[in-house]
């Protein structure tokens, strides 16, 4: 058969479907972009590398825990993940403050998910994971390991106690 009879036949209904599909995807692009770059709901980005074999001996992770940057307003929390617990496993911060978590692992891959917040990332040996959140309400927020790290994985958890705003 000669090539002159070739054509890309598209049924009109299918054409409308394809246009609608593209439209739908453009809406998704826009939603993600607005939420990410205008509302600031961001995923972790590259922070810095550390040596997993020595990180626990050097500041700031030689003394993991909470650092008060601006009382009542800004805190930093340094957390070490290791089989099968977090150090520290208890954290206390006030409601309404911006709290930034810096987490790394000294052994295998772990996860760090702070329940009921958007803080959820991998904790890898050799890398520092960083995300911030603001607790609106006082209460107890567990943080749990979300990556299989060995037989004791299920008990690897800690908790943030959020106190009344000062």
């Amino acid at each position: 058969m000669s090539t002159s009879t070739e054509h890309l036949h598209i049924d009109p209904t299918e054409k409308r479907w394809m246009i609608a599909s593209v439209g739908l995807l453009l809406i998704f692009f826009a939603a993600v972009t607005v939420a990410g770059f205008m509302l600031g709901i961001q995923v972790p980005t590259r922070e810095r590398r550390v040596d997993p074999n020595t990180v626990a001996e050097q500041p700031p992770w030689s003394e993991p825990g909470v650092r008060e940057i601006v009382p009542g307003e800004e805190y930093e929390v340094y957390v070490l993940a290791h089989r099968f617990s977090f150090t520290p496993n208890e954290i206390e911060v006030p409601a309404g403050a911006k709290v930034t978590f810096y987490v790394t692992s000294t052994d295998v891959q772990h996860g760090f998910k702070l329940q009921d917040t958007n803080v959820n990332f991998m904790a890898l040996p050799g890398q520092v994971s960083k995300l911030s959140t603001t607790f609106e309400k006082p209460g107890v927020y567990p943080y749990i390991c979300t990556e299989y790290c060995g037989l004791g994985h299920a008990v690897m958890a800690g908790a943030v106690t959020v106190t009344e705003a000062p």
Binding site: V43, P44, T45, R46, T104, N120, M122, L124, K130
Partner: peptide, 13 residues
Amino acid sequence: QFVDPGVPAGWKY
């Protein structure tokens, strides 16, 4: 790898 620490957010996007 959206929540991996060693990949820049721009590439994730």
